[in-house]
């Protein structure tokens, strides 16, 4: 259970990325954060594991306030929070196996990790995960030799290596083609269900959000402007989140002369097939 209370973030440049966000995520729940670029989605997600230090407010995970932790307590907490990135964020020159094992760094001592001496449970877990994401043949390949979809699978395996209770996912599909995007999203959701995780997904793609998340949070200019079940997401809501003008631009793109409602319906039905 994650509770975010009045979370604010102001960057040194003066930009106010978050202006008091309140949010709850329950166990086993997948929520999607949608909103225009620059709405603060990435900042919000990074405030949860403090890759970005919040300016004020609280992030409570199972009642414990993340924002008040000292460095070593924070590291302990981070172990339990897996993260998946837009550009995969793999270490290119390390092998797939090393990248996956790096998910265990929080659990492993410095010297052991330096000489790649991970416990055998970790190794067999890594093999199992790599098999689960379909990369058994690439264990000793270097990460930069893989395709985008494969790289993201490595990223997923790395996040799950941490035995997380919460999964933060930042634009997992923005660098992938539509087909691979759906495969990757499906994989993430399956794994989240298998491991009974809470999951927050930042996502640009409204269709994918609607299809894969149970609940949708709309963020705009650093504030939550919508919160509701994914089935309730309609054009009015999108207008609210993305703004009238933006939404109209989107509509024109879909080269249809029908009414707003029908047009939007079209987009959504795509996602439900």
């Amino acid at each position: 259970m994650i509770e975010i209370r009045d979370l604010k973030k102001k960057y040194p440049s003066g930009q106010e990325a978050l202006k008091g966000v309140n949010l709850e995520v329950h166990n086993n729940e997948v929520i999607a954060l949608i909103g225009p670029s620059g709405a603060g989605k990435s900042t919000l997600i990074r405030c949860i594991n403090r890759l970005v230090e919040p300016t004020s407010g609280q992030v409570l995970i199972d009642g414990k306030d993340i924002t008040s932790l000292n460095t070593s307590e924070l590291r302990k907490q981070r172990k339990k929070i897996g993260m998946i990135f837009q550009e995969y964020a793999l270490v290119d020159r390390l092998t797939v196996m090393e990248n996956v094992l790096s998910g265990r760094l929080g659990y492993t001592g410095f010297w052991k990790s330096l000489f790649r001496k991970f416990p055998s449970e970790d190794i067999s877990k890594a093999y199992a995960l790599l098999e689960r994401v379909g990369l058994s043949d690439y264990v000793d390949s270097r990460a930069d030799q893989l395709s985008g979809g494969q790289r993201q699978r490595v990223g997923i395996a790395r996040a799950l290596m941490q035995d997380p209770t919460l999964l933060l996912v930042d634009e997992p599909t923005a660098s992938l083609d539509p087909k691979t995007s759906r495969q990757v999203m499906r994989l993430i959701i399956e794994l989240v269900q298998e491991h009974k995780l809470a999951c927050i997904i930042n996502i640009h793609d409204v269709i994918l959000a609607k299809q894969f998340a149970q609940r949708i949070i709309g963020l705009q200019a650093g504030q939550v402007v919508y919160e509701g079940k994914s089935d309730d997401l309609d054009t009015n809501v999108l207008t609210k989140i993305y703004g009238e003008e933006d939404w109209n631009v989107k509509k024109k793109d879909s080269n249809s002369d029908d009414s707003e409602e029908d047009d939007a319906q079209d987009i959504f039905s795509l996602g439900e097939k």
């Binding site: 092998t95 196996m97 790649r116 991970f118 055998s120 190794i123 067999s124 093999y127």
Partner: peptide
């Protein structure tokens, strides 16, 4: 059976 050991290829 999943493998239990792994070594970086030299």
């Amino acid at each position: 059976e999943t493998q239990k050991t792994w070594k970086k290829k030299p």
